[in-house]
Amino acid sequence: MSVTKLLEKWSGQVTEITIGATSADGGTRSKAIKLGGETTMPFMLQEGAMPNKPVIAMEVLDTEPTWWPDTLKEPFSDALKDPAAWAKKCQDEYKADLICLKLWGAHPENKNISVDDTIKTIKAVKEAVGLPIMIWGSGNSEKDNQLFPACSQALAGEKALLGTAIQDNYKTLAATCLADGHNIIAESPLDINICKQLNILLSDMDMPPDRITIFPSTGAIGYGFEYAYSIMERTRLAALGGDKTMAYPMVAVISSEVWKTKEAKASTEEMPHWGPQKERGIAWEAATAVSFLLTGANLLIMYHPKSVALTRKYIDQLMKTS
């Protein structure tokens, strides 16, 4: 007797967005990246299509991360002092899909790097790499509102991905992205209702749906991961169920979330029963990344080249064997 497989049928589709513009589209990037477009839950390729595989952005900071554990510094060595060299290494050696430049040092409570100096860094990174670029703001609304218009202009025509817009501070960034043709990251604080509300607010500003991504806030395994996972799963189920206001590609921050955990940072001497630190941090980052893939993340932001390689291998296997 043959058994019929019970397959889920979905009516909705995740919006497809493009990051990066090549010369054909008026930019200078060597390639463009597409996100989204799914008509199924992640990797359920018998139930629907997943036209674009998830991508990995490698994160570069505008400041040398002196606080990083040595195991994380080691693959980048001196490049950590120079964001452009760091980005180039991520592109040439570690095969990142795109570069995420995080303006950590621009935050007034960190290094308070000026707008002018930030623009110099952005231009240097843009010259150094051909990959599509993401810019992640300082997280200080006042400073970000000064930074975003300048960053956006420095990348005009490149179809970058800029973030983040939050419910209390989205207008400047949205207007800027609209003016210069960029994509936007809409951030909500682990709150699906605010996530949806912000998407509506952005669409009220005439932000086209194919230029919005969702960052629902993410945490490492052991540090709030489950909350993010269930919110992202509900978001994706709503999208596939036909709710167009939730049907945007999702961004997951793995990098800093994992590498601030004790499990990634503690030395082997400190925690001998946890196994060698050199492998532990990489495993923690890769496991967190893979877990987010399973709830529908489209773009992962990561640090360590070895976790990036492990995660990419996993993506390729799932895209092939499902």
Binding site: N193, C195, K196, S203, K244, T245, M246
Partner: peptide, 15 residues
Amino acid sequence: KFIYCDSYLDAYRKA
């Protein structure tokens, strides 16, 4: 049947 947000009437019509 759908996810709440403050502008849910508007959101439903948009969706």
